[in-house]
């Protein structure tokens, strides 16, 4: 038997710690978001159900769900929501909270890619596309990486020919001028966010 408490603790937490989380309570469970999502069939919990789970206090289940990681930001749900909930934003906010709370399901590809992108970007202040692609291809080991790279070969070559991908980027690549200033900025931003959303 599941002893759910239906207390609002988690809802309050979401309101405080999730971007646009204060709108979760406005959901009236019509389900139009769930039906509108193009990735819907691949979710364990569609948005409206996630919102109900939040209200039911199912913290663990919500944060460890992979559902919010499936959002592709198509905005269909926002457009159709009769209560004007910014569902896309809430999904991303929930994903972020899950990440910060260390609840992301192991091997969740969107989460993984997000981390790679972040790491790649924050190192130099610029996205090193070549390295990002390679790290993505090789995330599951060398053999799989070669396969992935071969499969994407023609795309890569095409980009190179068009001057959109510089092979020399592998040697470190370009970066912004004031890297340390940029790092400081990120640190400050994180501090602000942590304080505001009590994420420390």
């Amino acid at each position: 038997m599941s002893e759910m408490k239906y207390h609002n603790n988690f809802l309050r937490e979401v309101e405080e710690r999730v971007e646009e989380g204060h709108m979760v309570k406005m959901c009236m469970q019509c389900g139009v978001c769930s039906g509108s999502c193009p990735f819907g069939p691949h979710w364990a919990h569609p948005p409206q159900e996630l919102f109900m789970m939040i209200r039911a206090g199912k913290r663990e289940e919500v944060l460890s769900s992979d559902s919010m990681w499936m959002c592709t930001s198509c905005y269909q749900c926002i457009v159709r929501c009769p209560r004007k909930l910014p569902i896309t934003h809430i999904m991303h906010g929930l994903a972020y909270l899950a990440k910060r709370e260390g609840k992301v399901p192991k091997g969740q590809p969107t989460a993984q890619f997000g981390q790679m992108f972040w790491d790649n970007l924050t190192k130099t202040g610029r996205v090193n596309e070549l390295k990002l692609s390679l790290s993505l291809y090789f995330k599951d080991g060398f053999g799989q990486g070669i396969k992935n790279a071969m499969a994407m070969q023609s795309v890569g070559l095409g980009l190179m020919k068009a001057g959109r991908l510089n092979p020399l980027e592998i040697l470190g690549g370009h970066s912004i001028k004031d890297k340390s200033g940029f790092q400081a900025m990120l640190k400050k931003a994180r501090e602000i966010e942590d304080t505001r959303r009590k994420l420390a």
């Binding site: 039906g35 569609p46 159900e49």
Partner: peptide, 8 residues
């Protein structure tokens, strides 16, 4: 197209 919300 849609979702029956009683039990998803």
């Amino acid at each position: 197209h849609g979702v029956d919300t009683e039990g998803y």
